[in-house]
Design a protein around this nucleic acid. Structure first.
Lengths: 181, 181
DNA sequence: TAGGCCATGTAACCGGTTACATGATTAG
DNA sequence: CTAATCATGTAACCGGTTACATGGCCTA
């Protein structure tokens, strides 16, 4: 799912600005499975406008640059529905922490503890964030999606907490072996 | 974690070729949290060699091009350990399916069912794959990491299965409303 | 005999990030 | 007085993918 599709998805539910699309994708209800920066959103919107999939209406503001409010067109809706029809690709998951955990023996128990605690912190923050979104968000599908995220992150958090000391032990034992050699 | 760091990590545990690094990152024990193609691995290895972080020894083979076996150097080990010291960034998670689930109302119950079934299929395949790796892999840290993956994917799979019909209902109800308008 | 595996590598391309430029307003 | 929020946009850069080139061996 590229930024273009994300814009179409958000605009399908109502008109917005590039600025607000970024907020939605970074803090809002889309934030736990997408990401987009201004440098990709603004060009994507201009391109969509050129292609006739969205329209743009300007709203003057004093001081600030005028808000460019985008709305999806009928052909935009069709294009988006067509895109949604094709089966979803697999999830993409990248984890710096799991590379570290795999190398726990190399860095030793103290650093391992630090890394897993940082990781647990990340997960807690993400979970809090998702719960907040769930509370603020309406719409059954959005709720379902949110709940999915909460469920998965909770599971990860549980594992990390319950097996924290096991990983640190692994790091400790193996570093002892390394030292003994 | 870029490809460069991945190469260093793998070489830390023993010498290999670019070809085998790709296999490890696509099918092996690193596969569920990293990814790399030849087009990024080969240039990364040459660069690491230039920087003196790895060395390369060529092994002739008849017919095939010679295997270039890379090994990490002492400064490579130091560089890698230094990189591992800094706290892990948050996990990256991208999901096409969750964008679809959020738009369940738009595509209706049949397409929603299709999408979630595809998604469940992906998760099952990944889980199988991870279990296979767990069986084949030695090393306590690698096991811990593998188990983490299994735990998280199982949780996702459970949610998807247990709430499959709920999502399809959401899609059905809302499409009825759309039709009624 | 077609396709997959082994094994390397390069070049074109692409999607995206980062950093910059602009500038008023408001909150701490 | 500083930092953040609002609001747009561009240009340089970068990490990575895709597709190609090469070619022998082995299996179905």
């Amino acid at each position: 799912m590229n930024v273009r599709t994300l814009c179409l998805a958000i605009l399908y539910f109502g008109e917005t600005t590039g600025y607000d699309i970024k907020k939605l994708s970074m803090e809002g209800k889309y934030s736990h499975f997408v990401d987009a920066s201004f440098g990709s959103i603004y060009p994507a919107l201009s391109k969509l406008e050129k292609e006739g999939l969205v329209t743009c209406r300007q709203e003057a503001q004093d001081g600030k640059p005028p808000r460019k409010i985008y709305a999806i067109t009928e052909s935009g809706r069709t294009a988006f529905r067509t895109e949604l029809m094709e089966p979803p690709g697999p999830n993409v998951f990248r984890s710096e922490f799991l590379l570290i955990s795999m190398c726990a023996e190399i860095i030793g128990p103290e650093q391992t503890a630090r890394a897993i605690d940082t990781h647990i912190g990340h997960l807690m923050a993400e979970l809090d964030h998702l719960k907040k979104i769930r509370a603020e968000t309406e719409g059954a599908a959005a709720h379902w999606t949110c709940e999915y995220g909460i469920h998965c992150i909770s599971a990860g958090l549980d594992y990390a907490r319950n097996n924290r000391s096991a990983l640190i032990d692994i790091a400790a034992q193996t570093s002892l072996q390394n030292a003994a050699q």
